[in-house]
Design a protein around this nucleic acid. Sequence first.
DNA 1: CTTGACTTCCTATCGTCGATAGGTGATTCT
DNA 2: AGAATCACCTATCGACGATAGGAAGTCAAG
Lengths: 195, 195
Amino acid sequence: MAGSVALRREAKIASIIEAAWELAREHGIGGLSLHALAREVGMRQPSLYEYFASKHALFDALFAAGNRQLLERLDATTFPHEPRAALKRGLAVFVEFALEDSARSELLFQRHIPGFEPTRESYGLAEEALDRLVELMHDAGVNEQGDVDCLVAVTAGLIDAQMSNDPGGDRWTRHLDRLVDLLVDDATTKRRRSR
Amino acid sequence: MAGSVALRREAKIASIIEAAWELAREHGIGGLSLHALAREVGMRQPSLYEYFASKHALFDALFAAGNRQLLERLDATTFPHEPRAALKRGLAVFVEFALEDSARSELLFQRHIPGFEPTRESYGLAEEALDRLVELMHDAGVNEQGDVDCLVAVTAGLIDAQMSNDPGGDRWTRHLDRLVDLLVDDATTKRRRSR
DNA sequence: CTTGACTTCCTATCGTCGATAGGTGATTCT
DNA sequence: AGAATCACCTATCGACGATAGGAAGTCAAG
C-alpha cells in the first residue's frame, strides 16, 4: 500500500482541524487550547505536535481551510449577468459567510490571535478570495484602487459592526446594497468626469 | 492628613496604568502580562491585586482611561460652524485618535481581549464619546438610525483597514471626507424625498 | 521471517501565565 | 500606646504552550 501512511496522516490532520473548528465555535478562536483539542481527538497534548509544529501552525492550517471554504462558496454561487447585481451578490455571499461563523471570521478577517501571521501560502488563498470580489468590482465599473479600497472597507465595516453589536441580525448588513449603489455610482461617474 | 492614603493609592493606580499603556504599546494589548507590569512598577505580580481585582479589572480601568482621553480630545477640538464640516472634523479627530495608538484602539474599538467586557460605568464613557459624534451627524441632517449606523460602520471600516494594512499611512482614511459627503447627501435627500 | 527504520503515541518536565493563601512590617487612626 | 488597616512579600496552584526522551506499533528490505 504505497502512501497509506500519508493518507492516514492526512485524514488525522483533517479530523483534528474539524475538532478545532468545533472547539473554536464553542469558546472563540482565542479560547482554543491544545490540551482540550487533544482530548477531543483522543490524544494527549504533546501528541498534537506530531501533526502541527506549533499552535500558530495549527492556526495557519485553520486559516487556509477557512479561506478554501470561502473560495468553494464563491465557486458554488451563481451570479446574475448584470455586473452590479453580480457584485452585490458576491458581497452578500461574503457577508453571509462571515456572519455564519464568528470564530472563523475572527481568524480569517480580524487580528484576533496576538502573534499570528499566516504563511505566504495560506495568505495566497485569502488574496485569491479577495481577487474574486475585486474582479466583480471591475466588471461593475469600479477600477480605481481607491474606490476598490472603499468598497472593501465599507463591507468589512458593516460585517464588523454586525458581528460585534447585533450577531444574527441585519441592522447593519441590510444597508449593504444601498452603500454599494452609492459607491459604484460615485466611482463610475467620477471616472467619466475626469476623462 | 485626611485622605492621604487614598491620594497615595490613586497616584499608584495612575502610575500602574501609565506603565500598562507603555507595555501595551510595546507588545500589543494582548501581550500585556501582570508579571511584567509589576516588575515595571517595582513590585511582584501578586501585589498588583492590591489595586486591581483581576486582569480584566485592569483592562476595564484602561478602557475607561482611554475613553476619557478621547472625550478630552473632542473637548479640545474647535469645530467649524458649518454642520457638515464639523462632522468631518469630528470624525477626523476620531480617526486620528484611533490611529495614533494601535494598542489603545485594540482595547477600545476592537474585540481583542477574549473574555473582556467593560463594566457598565466604563462603557458609559464609550457611549458618551459616540454620542458626541452622533450629535454632529444630527446637526448635519443625518437623523435616521440606519444612516447613523452606516456612517459609524464606514468610519470604523476605514480605520480598521488602515490599521491592519497600512499603519501610519492614509491609503484608506484619505477617503473619509468623500464617503461622508456621499452618505450625508444620500441621507438628507432621501429624507426630503419621503416627506 | 526477521531486522531496522520510521511512525505515532506516551509520560515527565519546563517556564510563563493569572490567581489565591497567608504572613510581615509600616503607616495611620483612636 | 495599642488596634486597625495598608502595602507589600513568598509560596503555591492549575492551565497553558512547548520540549525531551522513550515505548510501542507499522512497514518494508534482506
